[in-house]
Amino acid sequence: MTSLPAFPSGRRLGLVIDLDICVGCHACAVHCKEWNTGGHPAPLTDRDAYGTDPVGVWLNRIHTFEADEGDDVRTIHFPKSCLHCENAECVTVCPTGASYKREQDGVVLVNEDWCIGCKLCSWACPYGAREYDETEGVMKKCTLCIDRIYNENMPEVDRVPACVLTCPAGARHFGDLGDPRSAVSRLVAARGGHDLMPELGYKPTNKYLPPRPRKTRARDIGAPRRLVPAGNAERLLAKWMDRIFTR
């Protein structure tokens, strides 16, 4: 059934990602791939994995941005996975009922036995959270590690998504964002957590905590206001060498 739950339980499990802390190490993406290639959406296939054109399914991707100019420039690492939206249009566009949102906790999943691989859900997702598995002919997505978070065979401390468990910097938090008293909700309130593309109205569950303001600016401790690129002569030489060797 691809209609959204008529009577959601109010529980909204999701992630809070701290952009102030994330160091861009990609460990969360690696552990995600490792766990999920043997978990609920298994396998996450790759093609030409050791060749020159490797392409494969990953459910978590880390982008890196730079903001502003000069000595105020900052690097922001930006992990992105399914946001388990309240208004998940990837679910409502599905023609088969393979894509669904769980009533009990709001997690968005794909029933791979019903998926026809039409890819429309990936078009409907503004965030690029869904990736098509060419080898299996079905759509894959973050399951919020549904096979970990309720797994009674694991010690309770491990019942969190693999990305959260593995983050060496503590930049990822997991919890119930539908409960205003939960630790994650209080963190979002305290740090001014925000939604991605709120203007589209998907109401994502996952929240992002913005980088904290700087205490000291680089220029106040002696950094140059602008970094000047290497001199012209060197660049011309490099260009000339490049032209010779690419012939």
Binding site: H63, T64, F65, E66, A67, E69, L196, P198, Y208, P210
Partner: peptide
Amino acid sequence: TATGLRVYGKLRAVEGP
């Protein structure tokens, strides 16, 4: 808006995943 990072100024993607 895609990143929610408007207050930090113009954003440039420097490295893909």
